[in-house]
């Protein structure tokens, strides 16, 4: 079983001219498998930097990032790409699908990047799509899908590599209220059914009821917010 994601006193600094900007200030944080955590905060608070470091896209200036028990804070780019491919499921903002691949191929692409596509992969992809209510859309292209459907495909794609952690970056940014709830509920559902650790960065406070824990990010500092009852 995986051990989720843990950050220990992670800081990130940027040099802007003579100034040193602290994007993340000694952030410590932990998310267990089966746990769905939200990080909220105003823009510029360091949410994206937080997610980039959690998602092996960026290396922290200080501190440790433990993914599934392994410190990934000092790995070279190539190994980070591998970590992303095998250990992390990303759900990004809308329109993050490859425009010329159909729904099934979007999922299989993940396996393709890691090597050959097997029959088991195809079965797994079909099962995921069924679970997310996309069985009828397997052969459709992104432009033929609604915004909600696209995000469901993205959720399925994030699960395709059986990751240790799922990271969602404003997954409901371009959706109306009904579909935003639908997508958030689906993420919460797969987190439980697949027993994954999940972190969602959002500024949409309506969705926090789906999360087990909420953290607030302000000026690079992360602090627990008031508990939210599970919906």
């Amino acid at each position: 079983m995986t051990q989720g994601l843990e950050m220990r006193a992670v800081s990130k600094y940027y040099d802007a001219g003579s100034e040193r900007i602290t994007a993340l200030d000694r952030v410590s944080f932990k998310v267990e498998p089966g746990e769905f955590v939200a990080v909220v905060g105003p823009s510029g608070s360091g949410k994206t930097t937080f997610l980039s470091i959690a998602g092996a896209l960026l290396r922290p200036s200080e501190g440790e990032v433990l993914l599934n028990g392994k410190d990934i804070s000092k790995l070279p780019d190539k190994e980070l790409a591998d970590i992303r491919l095998r250990e992390i499921g990303f759900i990004l903002q809308a329109s993050n699908l490859v425009p010329y691949l159909n729904v099934m191929e979007q999922l299989l692409l993940v396996k393709r990047m890691a090597g050959k596509i097997t029959e088991a992969d195809k079965t797994f992809a079909a099962r995921l799509l069924e679970e997310l209510g996309l069985s009828g859309r397997v052969k459709n292209y992104p432009e033929e899908l609604s915004g909600g459907e696209r995000q469901r495909v993205a959720i399925a794609r994030a699960l395709m590599n059986d990751p240790s952690v799922i990271l969602a970056d404003e997954p409901t940014a371009s959706l109306d209220t009904r579909r935003a709830h639908e997508v958030a509920a689906l993420i919460a559902h797969v987190v439980k059914s697949h027993h994954k650790a999940a972190v969602m960065v959002t500024h949409d406070e309506r969705l926090l009821s789906y999360c087990d824990k909420v953290y607030r990010m302000e000026d690079g500092r992360l602090s627990p917010a008031e508990p939210v009852p599970v919906a």
Binding site: I83, L92, V98, M113
Partner: peptide, 12 residues
């Protein structure tokens, strides 16, 4: 942009 997304999900 597409390449960026694919790299984010692990493409080398």
């Amino acid at each position: 942009n597409q390449f960026g997304i694919m790299k984010a999900i692990g493409a080398r």
